[in-house]
């Protein structure tokens, strides 16, 4: 399902999600060339520099949480994507607390909680 698409992964992302992307036919590239930016930690220097880049200022560099890929796999959606990527936005670290106060915890925080449970679903 990722065939022909190019993604960048922050060094904060564990090998799992990256492997899912590649297994789904996606390519890896640097962040300026990537169509999809994945990170698991907005405080990581490589992610922070994206959030401080001109491209982000222009609204052309939304970073998504890498657990989107795990969520796809869990939903059995690796063939046809049904998990809404738009729910997995990873905003700049300095905004997260404020956003959390207004809308509750992020979906990727809920997903992380689910991931910690070793349940066979």
């Amino acid at each position: 399902m990722f065939r022909g698409r190019r993604a960048w992964f922050s060094q904060s992302v564990s090998p799992g999600p990256r492997g899912l992307w590649v297994a789904g036919g996606g390519a890896l590239t640097d962040w300026l060339d990537a169509e999809y930016l994945f990170s698991s930690d907005a405080t990581h220097p490589d992610t922070r520099s994206i959030h401080e880049s001109l491209r982000y200022l222009e609204g052309r560099a939304t970073v998504f949480h890498s657990c989107y890929l795990s969520a796809c796999e869990r939903a059995g959606a690796m063939e046809k994507p049904s998990v809404v990527l738009g729910h997995f936005i990873l905003p700049p670290a300095c905004l997260q607390e404020e956003i959390r106060r207004k809308i509750g915890c992020f979906i990727w925080e809920q997903v992380n909680v689910l991931e910690e449970k070793p349940n066979g679903n």
Partner: peptide
């Protein structure tokens, strides 16, 4: 749905 948009 899915990948109808991207980071850009």
């Amino acid at each position: 749905g899915g990948l109808s948009f991207n980071s850009r």
